[in-house]
Write a protein that binds this DNA or RNA. Structure first.
Lengths: 137, 137
DNA sequence: TTATAAATTTGTAATGATTGCAAATATATA
DNA sequence: TATATATTTGCAATCATTACAAATTTATAA
């Protein structure tokens, strides 16, 4: 289970990112969210608070976060890029009915028991499932 | 390891798809390919053989194949959608250096040992890794 | 075979997410 | 306080994908 940093300012600083208002709000929103929001969702959610916010800033900021390794990209549908503040090894389940994306735990054994990749360096691993969630049944 | 159907005409028919020239060539190309091609790649490869081929046809055909369950979408980068004729349970490894996408075997135990998804119906599972392949090291 | 209907393919225009870029603003430094 | 640097912003450009209607091909019925 993801434990979101209680002090986002220090968390960003520790990651080498200067905590501007925009960056802070975007990180906070993402770390509080359980829905794995898209750029659109983030932008719409923060626009009221930060009326001058630009969508380009959201893109820039998320890219910056990625480069510093504090968020990950969730690529399930080819037409919607989602973001996740939880960078630990875990899986995603997308319900094809309600569209929600859920997290689920995944043990590291999964990666370790993979054959056929001897001598490959693994830097990222992504696991996702699709189907119908219990709510929608 | 994927065993490509030796008779593509019958394979398409069995899947309920009328085997037009375009559909046949596209399926054949995809099933012979090990590179998990994009629409662009497929289009460029087949244009010489089928000079009137339209990119829209490639899109339409791949969507049709998906709907009939004979191909799967490989979504690793958010800006490149790839396709795979192998619909069996297996993983993908993308080398971030050379850009190639490799298959690797994955046992079904992986899916079965997942906790936290009791009462969820799973219809699709995708597993991919990123890193550096042995060739690039 | 020939006319007619249905399916498929095609080209072009529209859409929509993402990126490039340069101006504007804010922050840090001398 | 002036100057340099970093950040944000808005708008235009790009690029993959989709919508759509015309053109072509294939199947069906007379």
């Amino acid at each position: 289970m993801f434990k979101r940093p209680e002090n986002a300012v220090n968390f960003l600083k520790d990651a080498g990112i200067k905590p501007s208002v925009q960056r802070l709000r975007i990180y906070e929103f993402l770390s509080k969210s359980i829905e794995h929001p898209t750029v659109e969702t983030i932008f719409n959610a923060l626009s009221p608070e930060i009326p001058t916010l630009s969508k380009t800033t959201v893109y820039n900021t998320l890219k910056l976060f990625q480069e510093h390794g504090i968020i990950m990209v969730v690529n399930i549908e080819d037409n919607e890029t989602r973001y996740d503040a939880d960078t630990s090894f875990h899986g995603h389940f997308k319900c094809t009915k309600c569209g929600r994306v859920y997290d689920f735990p995944l043990s590291l054994e999964h990666t370790n028991t993979i054959g056929g990749l001897e001598n490959y360096t693994i830097t990222e691993s992504h696991y996702y499932l699709k189907g119908i969630c219990s709510n929608c049944k």
